[in-house]
């Protein structure tokens, strides 16, 4: 790959997905895009770049998806799910005892392991959530990834990463060599295509936002911009969960870390957050639900 081609791809990815590659990620581009180029019948990266410059729409989507798709597994990093079960949900169950509803957003839901892990956590809480309205919205940039998440079908290899065997037996159905998550859990999740660079106000407000291992790919200004917009979609007493390598510290004061709970953040000033105009649109819905 020539330096010119690399620069073109860097800029192209930055503009189309926000992916911010440093100057030394040639290997990453080659490892992901060479197989894609060959599949498309092209000779290599050079021809791929020519096609992108010519504006081939399907190829543009394929390239963005290939570069932004990441390995994930059930209960990834474990700690955030312990926080979810032991800290976040007990507080929400107390705070929302009146309206008995909880809205959760997986902002980088990828192939579904994260939203399904949350769904399993919620199922395990059993009676504590009886009669509650639980909504999990899982969004991802990639249409291909969303289709996989929607189907909820995983290979034998995938179901052995992070998933306790009791959970596999309890929540999955085996079909030959693959395992599919139960319809009841699939029904708990809405999958939607979303680019975090674009407006997401229409999703409404959430009690919990999981936004893990996606912001690391964005540059500083983009991160700040996303944090500020996330702050408008979260309830004043809600929770933001970031990946192990991510933080708001030094970027924005819209969220503050919760001491002793790594990766867990709260909106910083509930009154200021409540006064933001973007929340107004979501308020009638909340009132309506409280009145049900």
């Amino acid at each position: 790959m020539t330096p010119t081609e690399y620069e073109y791809l860097r800029k192209f990815l930055k503009d189309s997905s926000g992916l911010d590659l440093s100057a030394d990620k040639q290997y990453l581009i080659e490892s992901r895009l060479l197989p894609l180029a060959r599949k498309a019948g092209l000779s290599g990266i050079a021809e791929l770049v020519q096609k992108l410059q010519a504006g081939s729409r399907t190829l543009i989507t394929d390239v963005v998806e290939a570069m932004t798709t990441n390995e994930t597994f059930f209960f990834r990093d474990k700690v955030p799910f312990d926080h979810f079960r032991d800290h976040i949900m007990p507080e929400i169950i107390k705070a929302r005892a009146g309206r008995r509803s909880v809205r959760i957003w997986c902002a980088a839901g990828s192939t579904g392991q994260e939203p399904y892990s949350l769904a399993m956590c919620l199922k395990e809480m059993g009676a504590a959530l009886t009669g509650w309205r639980v909504e999990i919205i899982a969004t991802d940039l990639s249409q291909e990834v969303l289709e996989k998440a929607r189907a909820g079908v995983y290979s034998q290899f995938e179901v052995q990463r992070g998933l306790p065997i009791q959970m596999l037996v309890k929540y999955f159905k085996q079909t030959g060599e693959t395992w599919q998550i139960n319809p009841e859990l699939r029904a708990m999740i809405q999958h939607r295509q979303l680019n975090l660079l674009h407006d997401f106000a229409q999703l409404g407000t959430f009690d919990v936002i999981f936004c893990r291992n996606v912001l690391i790919y964005f540059d500083q200004d983009t991160k700040i911009n996303i944090f500020n917009r996330l702050a408008r979609q979260i309830e004043p007493d809600g929770f933001l969960v970031l990946g192990a390598a991510e933080t708001v510290v030094g970027l924005t004061d819209t969220f503050k870390p919760i001491p002793e709970r790594r990766g867990l953040y709260k909106p910083n000033d509930p009154r200021a957050a409540a006064a933001r105009p973007a929340l107004a649109a979501a308020t009638p819905r909340m009132v309506a639900m409280a009145g049900q």
Binding site: F73, Q160, R161, I165
Partner: peptide
């Protein structure tokens, strides 16, 4: 716990 073969280092470490 229960591992279905084939396995690798990641699966053993996870389990």
């Amino acid at each position: 716990e229960y591992i279905m073969k084939p396995f690798d280092k990641d699966i053993i470490a996870d389990k």
